[in-house]
Amino acid sequence: MRITCPYCGARDAQEFSYLGAADPVRPDGMAAAEAAMADYVYLRDNPAGPHRELWYHGSGCRSWLIVTRDTRTHAISAVEPAKVRKAGEAA
């Protein structure tokens, strides 16, 4: 598999490590109920189709990336830096 890092360009997937779904948002640990945190930690969708997921370019620029990958074909339709994206969401 190849992932096109928005900073480094197309690289072999061996340079990256996978974490999981990108969309769950960590609740504030002081404010949230235990159940909400349990959802964040454990509950994930398992879509057959496009999936937004976190990859870490550990052998490259050390950026966390949000990769949109079709789980059926491995076709990758988008790769964005998580930091930029998450900062935007928070703002």
Partner: peptide, 10 residues
């Protein structure tokens, strides 16, 4: 890096 870039980018 995850905590910084994904959880608390600000």
């Amino acid at each position: 890096e995850f905590c910084h870039q994904v959880l608390w980018p600000d």
